[in-house]
Simulated scan of single mutants.
Amino acid sequence: MTSAAAVLAVSQADDATADAVTGELNRRRIPVVRLDPGDSPGELSVAARLDEDGMRGSAWTRSRVVDLQRVRSVYWCRPHLYTAPTGLAEQDARWCVNEARYGLGGILPSPPSAHYVNHPWRPR
C-alpha cells in the first residue's frame, strides 16, 4: 500500500497527457496510482465506507493500492466510461453501469483533503 501521500491519476491507460504527468511525478519520486474507472470490474477494485470521521477506503489495481485518505491530489483526465461484466443481459448490464457510475463516481472524486486537477463533476 502507498504509505506516503499519493497522487491519484484517473485516466485511460493509453492517454499521452496522463503518461507525461505520471512520468513527471515518478521522476520527482511522488507516489502515483493510476487507474481507469472503465477497468472495473476486473482490473480495478474499490472499497469504501462513510463513518463519523468521513470517507475511508482503498482503491487497487493489479499493481497498486492506495488508501483514499492518503490521496493528496487527483488528476482526472478522460477516463473510460464504466463498464459491465461481459455476458449480462442488457437490462442487467445497464444496472451495473449505473451502479458503478454512482458508486465509483461518488468515491473516486471524493478523497478527503485532496486537491483536484479537472474535478470530474465540473464538466458535467
Rank of each mutant, 00 (worst) to 15 (best):
T2S: 14
S3W: 00
S3G: 05
A4C: 05
A4D: 10
A5L: 05
A5T: 09
V7E: 08
L8D: 07
A9R: 01
A9L: 10
V10E: 03
V10N: 01
S11E: 05
S11D: 07
S11A: 15
Q12D: 00
Q12C: 01
D14R: 09
D15R: 06
D15W: 09
T17Y: 12
T17C: 08
A18P: 00
A20I: 07
V21C: 13
T22E: 09
G23R: 15
N26I: 00
R28F: 01
I30M: 09
I30G: 10
I30S: 02
I30R: 13
V32D: 14
V32Q: 14
R34H: 01
R34Q: 00
D36E: 06
D36F: 09
P37F: 03
P41W: 15
L44V: 03
S45E: 14
V46W: 06
A47Q: 13
A47Y: 07
A47M: 08
A47H: 06
A48K: 00
A48P: 02
R49L: 10
L50P: 07
L50W: 05
E52K: 01
M55S: 05
M55T: 10
R56Q: 15
G57H: 01
S58I: 11
V65S: 11
D67N: 12
Q69A: 15
Q69M: 06
C77R: 13
C77I: 02
H80C: 10
H80L: 02
H80Q: 09
L81V: 10
L81H: 14
L81A: 11
P85D: 15
T86S: 14
E90H: 05
D92M: 08
R94K: 14
V97I: 12
V97P: 02
V97Q: 04
N98D: 03
A100D: 04
R101Q: 13
G105T: 03
L108E: 04
P109R: 03
P111I: 02
A114G: 04
H115C: 12
Y116W: 15
V117R: 03
R122M: 07
R122T: 13
P123I: 08
